[in-house]
Simulated scan of single mutants.
Amino acid sequence: MDPRSPGLLPPLSSPECWAEDDQTTLVCRGVWEITHDVKTFLFGAPDGRVFNFEAGQFITLQLEIDGQPINRCYTVSSPPTRPHLISITVKRVLGGPVSNWLHDNLVAGTEVTVLAPLGQFTLASPMADKYLFLSAGSGITPVMSMTRTLTDLGSAADIIFIHNARTPADIIYRRELEAIAAVMPNIKVVHICEGDYPSERWMGLRGRLSAAALEAIVPDLNERVTYTCGPPAYMAAVRRIVTALGYDMANYHEESFDFDSLPAGEQQAREIEVPQDGGEAEAEQATFNIEFVRSRKTVTCGAKQFVLDAALTAGLRPPSSCSQGMCGTCKTVMLDGSVDMQHNGGIRPKEVAAGKILICCSTPLSDLKIDA
């Protein structure tokens, strides 16, 4: 039977999700238990649309928890080579409002509003001959999407995948990675654990990634393109190690956005230092009026102040998450005026052409009217 026939999968000619609008409603199709505190949530489009994204990108979930709107970004863990479902893999974080809500409430059939995939931590084209994937904790998700993609495509690229975890029970995708390595001779998987789990003594490499370990596992380091993702301290340590080993950082890529760095509801206005001398200082101290049309409130914003920060200082709470111009959560329409927007991939050229801006990374060049 043709797997694309009615009743199984929609035809591959199905329209794409987010092709017309960067926000859509998806339906949870299933929940998988990955480890004792990690779950994968699979989503599909209710009308059979398929998903088009790049391995390594993230999506933004728009949720309402305890009556409060909360947005949270999660890296897509599924590969774009499997376009009928899209998944995120979430670790339960102590005190984390979103991760705990997802673990406790999101079940098959639940509908969730999701923003289109974004992010620049993706496999560069053309494909490399050799890759090194380095990850720790839940930072494994983007490089897992990359690994699944390369595996599905039958890539002959030589891949070394090194993952750090606290204990063997905390290794995300452990069995899947072992299975991939068992059938793909070009993929080598190495796990490093800091210690044992009560029910399992770890017999592999122990401790944390070091220069000595990296040299032993990857003797041809300088021939590889490296992708790194994990907690900020882990990525900083990796940068120090590869730099000390003389690695060409032009071939080094890391996920520059820590998705847990700004817990929902705790964003604060950023202070910007303004020079106090000369005519340039006077220009930088100029102020503009920002009218939030739907909120019916006008606030004052400095010439070197981000529009989001001016709104937060004035008591407004527009949707926002990363404050780095990456996630697209604060995207809104600018009805009038002009801004200097220095984003990090959180908005597309067609959206800019349509008058949309990211208020977290935009400073005013004139009085503004914002549709918010």
Rank of each mutant, 00 (worst) to 15 (best):
K39Q: 10
D129N: 11
I86M: 01
V38A: 09
T122R: 02
E64D: 08
T35P: 01
L118W: 13
R148C: 15
S138C: 07
K130F: 01
A136H: 12
V31G: 05
S78K: 00
L106F: 01
V143Q: 14
N100G: 14
W32G: 01
V31M: 01
T75L: 12
D129T: 14
I86H: 02
T147N: 04
N71R: 09
G44P: 05
R49N: 08
A108E: 12
W32Y: 03
M146F: 11
G139C: 07
V50F: 07
Q68R: 05
T147G: 01
F133I: 02
S145V: 10
T113N: 10
A156N: 15
R92N: 12
A108H: 05
N71G: 05
P117L: 13
G48L: 07
T110Y: 08
Q120E: 03
S77D: 03
H36Y: 09
G119Q: 09
H84I: 02
S145I: 07
C73Y: 04
I88T: 06
V76R: 06
E111G: 03
E33M: 05
R49W: 12
A128W: 05
G44R: 06
P79S: 02
G67P: 12
S77P: 01
V76P: 00
A116V: 10
T75A: 11
N71H: 07
Q57D: 01
A128N: 13
L61M: 07
S135A: 13
T147Q: 08
F41L: 04
